[in-house]
Design a protein around this nucleic acid. Structure first.
Lengths: 225, 225
DNA sequence: TCAAAAGTGTTTGCGATACACCCATGG
DNA sequence: CCATGGGTGTATCGCAAACACTTTTGA
């Protein structure tokens, strides 16, 4: 059999929309390009797919080597194929999005402090390549998914309070949600477990600490916007 | 700049899950392979992506040249990347699904009568490559999408009756739906328009003929299973 | 004891579901 | 005129949304 790679194939890359949540803000991780094309512009992190490498492996490689992140929630988003999306030549991008807890990873003031940065999703600069539209699609997917599937927990600490989860939902969905109805829906889904502990330190009543119920795979809930 | 294709890249293909509906049956179009690997096995139609070609163009090319189909509803599904999914070497498949009206296309008794065939989705043979899982994912997507988005019309004639649309939904979702509630939801969504004409020929009352409201883009409905 | 935030329960209203009758047609 | 399937309307029930009071805490 003639091996495939004797034919010419488009270049194949993964690009990553890395979402992070902290200080009641949803942010995306961007990279400042040091070379043409789009020199000095902000872009999504990404990498070319190596032979024998899975998409998720390539994504993990980027998250690990460029960003120092391990063990991250990853989901394939869409494959982008516009012939002119990369001025260097034909390049397909298989976009993914990732959900990380910024406090668990150490990007902030590392050696790449000027290269990598969190941007609030409402204050994004114009991105290079077609990364604006990749980001938009990722945001849309996240907003859709979080209303019926327990992905929000990936963005929080292992232990979190109900008000924190509630705020996360309001922030991502950019709306207000009745906290009492929200609480009931989430608790009814049984995706979170009250640990019995409480978050100390605040001046007011100490809220209960919950944890994500990892074992549960099939329950459903629906947060309406 | 060094052109991308001087590096080695995985082979890149599109694969198509072509759904058709006729005689109250949901079917998929399969191809009988004439060569190794998977000689004499049934597989999804597909093609390698040519340089400068978009996914949808490659899909259209397959639909046109191999199947004689034009102007078909197409949607990107997912990209499949298991390193061993093709024994000939590393091959990425960007899977799509298509919705066609079999009565509008001419596959049946053409020159490839032995190569191409419709299979009822409940009576599929074991497919070559990883096409079983591609098919399963496509079916799942179709079932999900049809409950909130007007894709069912792609499978019917330009003019169709309410009972026909109702039957289509019951068939695809593999369930029973109260026809009066179904009618109300569909009509409320305003995605279909009563043409005032009636389908003649049956012994019983002649049902109204509807057409799809192509202009409407944003209304929503929800068919629950 | 006060302000601020967290925990909890009840009422209300709309939308989905369940359900039944009349109408048109050809034989 | 009858059997068959198509068109239409209504009552009910459940869930989701709206809403208010009590509890805890540190200052």
């Amino acid at each position: 059999m003639k091996p495939f790679h004797s034919y010419q194939n488009p270049s194949l890359a993964v690009d990553l929309v890395v979402f992070g949540y902290s200080q009641q803000q949803l942010s995306v991780l961007l990279l400042n390009r040091k070379e043409a094309p789009f020199k000095d512009r902000w872009v999504l992190p990404g990498a070319f797919l190596q032979m024998e490498e899975r998409f998720k492996d390539a994504c993990s490689r980027v998250l690990k080597t460029k960003l120092g992140m391990d063990d991250v929630y990853l989901e394939q988003l869409y494959s982008f194929d516009e012939p002119d999306r990369d001025p260097r030549g034909r390049a397909i991008s298989v976009a993914h999005y990732a959900l990380v807890n910024p406090s668990k990873v150490a990007i902030a003031a590392g050696s790449m402090a000027n290269d990598v940065s969190w941007f609030n999703i409402n204050e994004l600069p114009a991105l290079g390549f077609d990364h604006d539209s990749i980001f938009q699609q990722a945001l849309q997917r996240l907003r859709s998914k979080i209303t019926y599937f327990p992905v929000g927990f990936e963005l929080l600490d292992d232990l979190f309070t109900m008000p924190e989860l509630h705020e996360l939902y309001e922030c991502i969905l950019d709306t207000t949600i009745d906290r009492r109805n929200f609480r009931r829906k989430i608790l009814d889904s049984e995706y979170i477990i009250n640990t019995g502990k409480k978050r100390e330190g605040s001046q007011n009543r100490h809220p209960d600490l919950y944890k994500f119920n990892k074992k549960l795979k099939k329950n459903s809930f629906q947060i309406n916007v």
